[in-house]
Design a binder for these strands. Structure first.
Lengths: 129, 129
DNA sequence: CTATGTGCAAAGTGTTTGCAAATTT
DNA sequence: AAATTTGCAAACACTTTGCACATAG
């Protein structure tokens, strides 16, 4: 039942952290292939699943149905309803507010997933031509 | 490009609204089958997709990877990390706070998806035996 | 040395699509 | 009557699994 530190795990997590974007599994696979090593797709699936269980990474299901992966740090997502791009929003004030709030006696926050939908600056301009 | 009001659309949306749970597509299919009518799976997929585009319903991707559908009203989800059940939280004060907040000059909130992870009351008790 | 992890290919699931018939407007 | 939607089955895409070999502890 012990988890072992393999080279593959290291590379997968490293690559996901380095990526500024929120890659799909396919994009992540390509990013890894660009490095020297090649990792099997099954290994990628298996390890992403483990990382999710271990709360190291998060899954984002986009409006268009794509499944994207994200290294788990405290932030909010803003998804553009036009171009589909996902932006990270860091808002400590809001996060603090979130963490201090109790939704009922026992329901404490262990983790959360917060995505806001709207239009990004670029698309806003285009749509208001 | 006009959208037509078919009986199938009516039944699908109706059944989803009636369901107090957040059904998977399979659960929804069964709920519909329990009524007189039978709707093809393809029709179900096609219409759920349309409803999402039209912002009538929302998708929830659970920690365990299940895809659940939810009628789109203003509320927050609380997912139990132990039993997996999803609870609705209605917190107007928080929703108002959310809606009034601007994340930067142009990034307005059109819609959002907010899920909190933790343990539900029942599981809390069990786990602290 | 033993248990865990990997890679491949095959199996399994879930979702989409082409097409003819039905339905809506 | 024209355009959209439906239902079926087949096609497609994504994810998991069995197994033999490799690797970590």
């Amino acid at each position: 039942m012990n988890s072992r530190n393999t080279n593959q795990k290291k590379i997968i997590l490293e690559t996901l952290i380095e990526a500024k974007t929120h890659p799909t599994i396919d994009e992540l696979y390509k990013l890894i292939s660009e490095k020297k090593v090649s990792i099997g797709r099954a290994t990628l699936y298996r390890n992403l699943k483990k990382f999710i269980e271990e709360n190291k990474i998060k899954v984002i299901k986009t409006k268009k149905g794509l499944i994207r992966y994200d290294y788990n740090s405290n932030h909010i997502h803003y998804e553009c309803l036009n171009c589909g791009e996902i932006f990270d929003i860091y808002d400590d004030e809001f996060i603090n507010l979130l963490n201090s709030r109790k939704w009922n006696e026992n329901k404490k926050i262990i983790d959360y997933n917060f995505t806001i939908y709207g239009y990004c600056d670029d698309c806003n301009k285009k749509l208001n031509d």
